[in-house]
Measured scan of single mutants.
Amino acid sequence: QYKLILNGKTLKGETTTEAVDAATAEKVFKQYANDNGVDGEWTYDDATKTFTVTEKPEVIDASELTPAVTTYKLVINGKTLKGETTTKAVDAETAEKAFKQYANDNGVDGVWTYDDATKTFTVTEMVTEVPGDAPTEPEKPEASIPLVPLTPATPIAKDDAKKDDTKKEDAKKPEAKKDDAKKAETLPTTGEGSNPFFTAAALAVMAGAGALAVASKRKED
């Protein structure tokens, strides 16, 4: 009698068979294992007439167990938060979910874009303008004329002030004479000065007065 010990991944146990020799028993056991989907390494112990079949655990490639991950970057252009961060993800969709959660946790809500070549996400917050509040242009400074500094008044001594007054009066006198001369030139000519009769009478009076003066002097002599 021969014995078979099964150490399979899905089947474990023992069974026996009657055979004329070990070779015949081995054929029977291998057919049995094959029928039950057991495929492994076989050993035989002649002392105990025991066969053992052991399935090795399937070696799984690490790449099959853990999907390949890629590093993705997020650029934040927020109104109050600006910067960059990264995450590792199996695909862009997974990275996007992580980045949007990160942005939401930090109060950033804007327009999202993605560049597959650089594996970069960008979120930009738009500045909202309040309706009716149009931007006002800064007032242009008016052209200013530079002020001319005033010349301080120079105090005048009393004596100098009197001299100035005297000079002013002396300066006025010639001007007054000139005014009188002008008035004389502009006076109208009277009839006496221009009538020949009056001129002859005046000469006769003057001659008579002269003769009287000569006669009076002779009497005195």
Rank of each mutant, 00 (worst) to 15 (best):
V53W: 07
T17S: 09
N34R: 02
L6S: 07
D46S: 15
T24P: 12
V20D: 08
K49Q: 11
E26C: 01
T48D: 10
V53I: 05
E55V: 05
G8S: 06
T10E: 05
K12V: 11
G13W: 05
V38S: 02
A22P: 10
Y44I: 05
T52W: 10
E55P: 04
E41I: 15
V28H: 12
I5A: 08
L6M: 06
K12D: 07
G40I: 00
D46V: 14
T24A: 11
T10I: 06
N36W: 04
A23H: 15
Y2W: 11
T54V: 08
G37T: 07
T10R: 06
A25P: 05
I5C: 09
T48F: 12
G40S: 02
D35S: 15
Q1E: 09
V53T: 07
L6K: 05
N36P: 01
T50G: 10
A23I: 14
T17L: 07
W42G: 01
T10G: 05
Y44W: 15
T43E: 10
D21Q: 14
E26G: 00
A23F: 15
G37Y: 07
V20I: 11
V53Y: 02
E55N: 04
W42Y: 01
N36T: 07
I5L: 13
T24N: 09
T43C: 10
G13K: 03
L6H: 03
D21T: 13
E14Q: 13
E41W: 15
A23R: 07
N34A: 02
L6P: 07
Y2N: 03
W42N: 00
E55Q: 06
T15F: 06
L4W: 02
D39A: 15
K3V: 10
F51H: 02
W42K: 00
V28I: 12
E14A: 09
D35V: 14
K9A: 09
A33E: 00
T10F: 06
G40A: 03
K30N: 00
E55C: 04
A19F: 05
D39F: 15
F29S: 06
K49F: 08
E41D: 11
G13R: 04
I5R: 11
E41A: 14
T52E: 10
D45Q: 12
A47K: 13
V28L: 12
N36Q: 05
T10C: 06
A47H: 13
A22S: 09
K27Q: 03
I5D: 08
N34Q: 01
Q1V: 11
A22I: 03
K3E: 07
V28R: 15
D35G: 15
A25S: 10
N36L: 05
D46C: 13
K49I: 09
V20C: 11
F51T: 01
Q31P: 02
F51K: 00
Q1S: 12
K3T: 09
E18S: 13
V20K: 10
N34F: 02
D45A: 12
A25F: 01
F29C: 07
K30V: 00
Q31M: 08
E14I: 13
V38D: 01
Q1T: 13
K9M: 08
T16H: 13
A33N: 01
F51D: 00
T17H: 10
W42F: 02
Q31C: 08
A47E: 11
T16A: 12
F51V: 02
E55M: 04
E18C: 13
Y32D: 02
V28C: 12
T16Q: 11
T24Y: 11
K30C: 01
T50Q: 15
T17R: 12
T10D: 06
I5G: 11
D39N: 14
F51C: 02
K49V: 10
L11W: 04
A22E: 05
D46F: 15
E55I: 03
I5V: 10
N7F: 14
G8Q: 03
G13F: 03
L4K: 02
K30L: 01
D21A: 14
F51I: 03
Y2Q: 04
D46G: 14
K12W: 15
